[in-house]
Design a protein around this nucleic acid. Structure first.
Lengths: 258, 258
DNA sequence: GCGATCAGCGGCACG
DNA sequence: CGTGCCGTTGATCGC
């Protein structure tokens, strides 16, 4: 338990020095901006980081109950027995106010950290690997372009099949849902207009929900099951190694299409 | 700086007592599960909460760099000079390991907190208010049902216009984008089939992107501007001012009342 | 448990 | 800047 005037100084110092600041105490929180919220009095943690991210954490959930990123932070004493910590932002205009009635703990830390996360198995990574060789989907499928920006979105992989038809490939790293199908539908329809050529759309995902598959069928699109292994920089896509698998995969695809 | 054996005991005790646990130190982090990641050695904060949420925070960003929710947490000493804190989960199987080489700070807190966030201005709330009286969109528009579950999603508001046509209304609390249009398109198409009646689709949002508006037009759907920004109402559509004021007033009133 | 959707989504990359 | 879209999305609610 500390004097609030001291706490105020500590907060201002930490913010100025861009240290990670941890404050625990009894507080009330109010937000006004993109929406509005109130959080009745209780004990929580306030976490302020170097980049101005401001977060109130309850003792549950991964995400903060109230937050603001890139905030301008200030604090002031109220009536001598309340400490207001305020985060402000504009465009859109937002304000987040935490009123502390008592402080259980406060400390700031300079955290030396040179490394950033290296993530493997992202959709971009999968897409890149896939686009190098599309034969596993069907023989003669030629990649034309990846990350093609069109008016109605960004196409993961653009290809051409043996019959010279345009093929739009949408890659999903997890089970495909209705929105994935809608997405592919948008791209396929736009390309059909642009190229005025026969156009196919293939959804590449580890699995798909029933309703999504039904919608896919309605739209005349195709599903291709994509099994992949993750965990290292050269994550393998099952079926790429064994040529034999192509035939099986092709048959499976035909079967799925029905 | 503390002995790692003590730290281990503190962690286990905090987890057992479901206290909020804060650990700062020099660590390396590795994740394996839905994807895979590695984070080279550096100083960060480990935050463990009562519900088993496990988060590694760098001194930037709102979100943790590595995390797991609902984790089973354990720790062990490695070679006497490393402390491994491990979070495990199954379905899907995931593992997150933080190896600490030194500890800058560790403390756990029992946080008494009786209140939950009360949020105003959510889409559900807006939708509820709107559905009570749809005349502001056009005279004679009668609400039939809200939160109607159909195969291809959940329809915000279902209504009937003066000509007896089915009207699907999709409400968005922020600027409508391509996916909002696709969503509405899905619902409208499905209802068209089910009811075998003429069907309209109206997208209700504060604004819409150009490409989304273009797609909306292609699909034969309609856009209706609804600016409900809290504390910043700007009525530009005739006949909408009253309704907007009502909504804004409602939210403000509710906010004040709490 | 899966499925669908919202979120004050956050964060990134490209125009 | 906005627009689009992925995310180890998380969190909620309905079935």
């Amino acid at each position: 338990m500390q004097e609030l005037i001291e706490v105020k100084a500590l907060i201002e110092s930490a913010v100025q020095k861009k240290e990670m600041l941890i404050v625990l105490g009894d507080c009330f929180v109010e937000y006004w901006g993109r929406a509005a919220s109130k959080l009745g009095r209780g004990r929580r943690m306030l976490l302020i980081k170097a980049d101005g991210s401001f977060a109130i954490h309850q003792n549950k959930h991964l995400r903060p109950v109230n937050y603001m990123m890139n905030a301008s932070i200030s604090c002031s004493l109220n009536k001598g027995n309340e400490l207001e910590v305020i985060a402000l932002k504009r465009n859109p205009k937002e304000s987040l106010k935490a009123v502390f009635y008592s402080i259980d703990f406060i400390k700031s830390f300079e955290l030396e950290d040179k490394h950033d996360l290296r993530l493997f198995g992202s959709e971009a990574e999968l897409s890149k690997q896939l686009s190098e060789d599309l034969d596993f989907i069907e023989p003669g499928l030629k990649p034309l372009k990846k990350e093609q920006h069109v008016k109605k979105g960004t196409i993961d992989i653009l290809a051409e099949d043996r019959q010279g038809r345009i093929v739009v490939v949408e890659v999903k790293r997890r089970k495909a849902s209705l929105d994935s199908v809608s997405q592919l539908h948008r791209y396929a329809e736009e390309l059909k207009k642009i190229k005025s050529r026969e156009t196919r759309g293939i959804l590449l995902a580890p699995s798909i929900t029933d309703s999504a598959h039904s919608l896919l069928h309605d739209y005349g699109l195709e599903f291709f099951k994509l099994d992949f292994e993750i965990g290292n920089p050269s994550a393998k896509i099952k079926g790429l190694e064994k040529k034999q698998k192509r035939i099986t995969a092709y048959i499976e695809k035909k079967h799925q299409a029905e």
